[in-house]
Design a protein around this nucleic acid. Sequence first.
DNA 1: GCCTCCATGTAATCCGTTACATGATTAA
DNA 2: TTAATCATGTAACGGATTACATGGAGGC
Lengths: 180, 180
Amino acid sequence: MAQKNRLKYILLGLLKEKKQTGYDLAKSFDSDIGEFWNANHSQIYPLLKRMEQASLIDHELDTVGEKLEKKTYFLTALGQQSFEDWLKSPSEMGGAHDEFILKLYFINDARSHLLSTMISEQEKYHNAKLAQLQAQFKAKFPTDKEVQANFGHSLVLRHAIEREKGYRSWLEEINQTLEN
Amino acid sequence: MAQKNRLKYILLGLLKEKKQTGYDLAKSFDSDIGEFWNANHSQIYPLLKRMEQASLIDHELDTVGEKLEKKTYFLTALGQQSFEDWLKSPSEMGGAHDEFILKLYFINDARSHLLSTMISEQEKYHNAKLAQLQAQFKAKFPTDKEVQANFGHSLVLRHAIEREKGYRSWLEEINQTLEN
DNA sequence: GCCTCCATGTAATCCGTTACATGATTAA
DNA sequence: TTAATCATGTAACGGATTACATGGAGGC
């Protein structure tokens, strides 16, 4: 039914790194993770409540100054498990948001045994995608005549091809880093 | 008012190129434009109805075989105008879906006077973005020690940097094509 | 005293996906 | 005849944005 609820896993991942408030979580989308995902506090607060009801997280109440209360959330064992399971599951490809990159963000140990599987999964996908796009370009724009007739369309296809090339070389770079 | 309703403009753009049915429109997301946007028929049919009510499009009824009726949609003058206005408006940056690329897809004349403005708008944005990301990388990962401590995070940032570099060189490539 | 930031929430609305539902046409 | 494709819709639900709403803390 509908979407994947990746935000849930992002929040779990962020809370796994350190316990924090909904306000803190909302802020991380302004920097860091904001490069790949977005979420507002109006989406985060209700979700935290639902996650707590599902026993994925729990909170403690801290008081700032005289009256101001804040809820500092942290993972439960179930939340921890749920997050690990998500990391291990195959990533959805090509969606608007890149799930692989999202997972990568949370793998902070270069020696994680998850990496090689995830990366070869991605290489396979992006190599196939690149080949498919290049074939498509050749089929649709065999000569400059076709390019001139559908200029924008050709640029957009070329952009997709460059995107895949960039993705591939980035993956290769990671492999090289890992081999050392 | 939630999102931007870019799908409306995509449909207008596709219908401007040639009049077609909702079924045809839905199919274009499987190839071509599917690289950058997605939409199902269950989203398209109701939207076409709303667009017709708003006098952006109109349809004629064609009959296939004995009984099967299909609605072939086409732009009205208002729809044409609405589409042109969207093309001319500044593109939203950085969202999950790239609005500039979307617009480009519909600019099939390499001599369009819209191109230079749009491209320099993009260059400005992506240059600034790249500089910002590089500064961020230097601040967060000054030495290999920090990279090792937050490996995934560093890769994700590097990916964003590579993405911007790729974007920039693609834009430069377009400029060179245009100068000839 | 005032402004910015911290902190938490709800409501309305729209966007997008999946599933349900139906029936005609065409080619193997 | 039967499977794939053409063709059009609705319903349910979840995800995401914008706006509304409130109030404390801390610095100048």
